[in-house]
Structure formats: structure tokens, C-alpha cells
């Protein structure tokens, strides 16, 4: 009996001693690590793209709540016009626009393009946010809807000029995933409706999907590419092509510079998704850039 108790005590002491040891040697940082592990945090992906546009098309990024962004974009003439036109720089089209974050998730914007003298207005809403941890969501999903009105005089010569024929509409789902810190991919199923088209044979509606990606070359520079594939083209204007663009995002503090080459001159969905006229096989390439500057209106 005594022997049993003694054995028990020895074991107990041994356990106590090792326990005691483990306390004494415990690293406080490791203890913190353990404590924070039990916390179930949700981590949201941020900066899937650097700007609210991948190149021509919208990205899932929003201008933050309370922030106003001023965007100036240019597309120049054809690079293959040669030295006489200074490789297209003589003929620039411009769009300037304002974008405001009503909340972090809801943006509205308006702009004016010199191309077809077009005014545009749009809204973008972030419905789902990519996250990991307690809440797991593989993608970010945004809804985009825009309306554009051309101000060109005598839009349809010989016909009565009705305002509604100047309008076109864009609806997009923007579905993106930031795969890792460097690589993000976005799919942008798009529907465009034009109230007036050039000939009766051309369909008013265009169904397309954009596919865009970015790869980070450094903390401040990314390589971007974007392509808009139209599902059906036999009912569309046969002088138009799918839009393609390649470019760089360069970030310097409050500015993002986007420099790119593309085969489309328009900077609105209607013009680049549905009415890109640049034929790559003919070497029709336009140089362009977007510059955005943000102003914080409402501080957190």
C-alpha cells in the first residue's frame, strides 16, 4: 500500500516538475501566438487591382467611402500613322470624369468623352467581398450599370432627332479573385444595349465577356491585360473587332498612372466592347493613359 502511494507521489512530482518547467521556459510571444489563434478573424482581400479600371473596363475596385477621384484619360491616334501625326499623339481623345464613394461599397461616377461627345453616368456596387478566415468567400462580385448619351449634332441625318436614340446602356457583373499578392483575375460578363445603331441589320444588343488580369512587377508597378470577347458577331457591325489592351499601372502616392496600348479609341463600354474599330492585323494600335487623383472629402 505504502509502496503504491510512494510510486503515485513520485509520478505526481515528476508531472508537477515538468509542468513547472514548461511554465518557466514558456516564451511569452509563443503564448500570445496561441492566444490569437483562438480568435477567429475574417481577413478581406484588398487591392485586387490598383485602380477602378483594369485598362478600359471597370475593375472590382471602388473609390473608398468619402473619397472623390478625378480621372483623366486619353487615347491617342493610331501609332502606325507615322511621324506626320507624331505616331498618333496629334489626335487625342479625352475623357474626364469624377467618381465618388458614397460608401466603401457603392460608387457613382460621371464623365464626358470627346469621342462622340458623350456624357456618361454610372453606379457600381460591391455585393460580395473575397475573404478568408471565419468568413470564407472565394471571389469579389460587383454590379455595374451605366448610361451614356452622345451629344453629336444631327446624329441620324434625315431622321427626326429624338433624345432616346442618343442613349446606350451597359450592365456588367464583375467577378474577381486575388489569387495571391501578385496575381488577380477578373471576368466581366457584359450586356450593352444601344437604342440606335448604324444600320437595321445590326443588333441593338451586344453580349460579351471581359477577361482581365494583373501581375505585380513590384510594389508600385503592375502589368495588366484585358480582352473583351463578344459571343456573337455575325449580327454586329463587321467593321468592329474585339477589344484588347495591355498596359502598366504605376502608383505614386495619391496618383495612379495607367499607361497602355489598345485597339480601341473609346473609353466607354459601348465604344470599346461593341464598337472597337482598330484592326490588329492592320496594326491599328492606340496609345493611351488614365490618371487618377483622389481627394478625401469625408475623413474617417
Amino acid at each position: 500500500m505504502n509502496k503504491k502511494i510512494l510510486t503515485f507521489l513520485t509520478v505526481l512530482l515528476a508531472i508537477t516538475f515538468t509542468h513547472f518547467q514548461s511554465y518557466a521556459q514558456e516564451d511569452l510571444l509563443e503564448l500570445l501566438e496561441e492566444e490569437t489563434k483562438t480568435e477567429n478573424n475574417t481577413e478581406y482581400a484588398y487591392a485586387t487591382f490598383k485602380a477602378t479600371r483594369i485598362i478600359n473596363g471597370q475593375s472590382v475596385e471602388n473609390t473608398a467611402g468619402g473619397v472623390l477621384s478625378f480621372i483623366i484619360a486619353h487615347r491617342f491616334g493610331k501609332i502606325n500613322d507615322g511621324f506626320y501625326q507624331l505616331f498618333g499623339l496629334d489626335q487625342s481623345t479625352i475623357r474626364f470624369g469624377l467618381e465618388y464613394g458614397i460608401t466603401d461599397d457603392l460608387n457613382i461616377g460621371l464623365g464626358r468623352s470627346s469621342f462622340q461627345k458623350t456624357f456618361d453616368f454610372y453606379g457600381k456596387y460591391k455585393l460580395l467581398k473575397q475573404s478568408s478566415g471565419a468568413k470564407n468567400m472565394p471571389v469579389t462580385l460587383s454590379l455595374f450599370s451605366g448610361i451614356a448619351a452622345t451629344g453629336v449634332e444631327d446624329l441620324s441625318p434625315g431622321n427626326e432627332d429624338v433624345f432616346s436614340s442618343r442613349l446606350s446602356y451597359t450592365y456588367q457583373l464583375l467577378l474577381a479573385r486575388k489569387f495571391n499578392n501578385n496575381f488577380s483575375l477578373q471576368l466581366s460578363p457584359t450586356v450593352i444595349h444601344r437604342n440606335l445603331v448604324r444600320t437595321p441589320e445590326i443588333d441593338n444588343d451586344v453580349f460579351a465577356t471581359g477577361i482581365g488580369a494583373r501581375y505585380k512587377l513590384s510594389n508600385r508597378v503592375t502589368l495588366n491585360a484585358e480582352y473583351f470577347y463578344r459571343f456573337r458577331t455575325d449580327n454586329l457591325d463587321d467593321t468592329t473587332f474585339d477589344a484588347i489592351a495591355v498596359g502598366f499601372d504605376i502608383e505614386t502616392g495619391g496618383h495612379v498612372f495607367q499607361l497602355h496600348i489598345t485597339n480601341s479609341r473609346g473609353m466607354l463600354e459601348r465604344y470599346f466592347v461593341a464598337e472597337t474599330t482598330g484592326d490588329l492585323s492592320e496594326g491599328d494600335i492606340f496609345f493611351g493613359f488614365n490618371i487618377s487623383r483622389v481627394f478625401t472629402i469625408v475623413e474617417k
Partner: peptide
Amino acid sequence: GELALSVLIKGFEFEKALMQEHFNEN
């Protein structure tokens, strides 16, 4: 008298959203 402190960088909040993004990213 030993002490340890640990903080997640992503948990820092700035008055300007872009500052926060650049702080983390760049």
C-alpha cells in the same frame, strides 16, 4: 518582468483609405 506584445499590421486604421492600402501594400 518579462513582457511580449504582438500586433497585426493589417489592423491599423488610417483617416485616409489610400494611406492604409499603401501602408500595407508598399
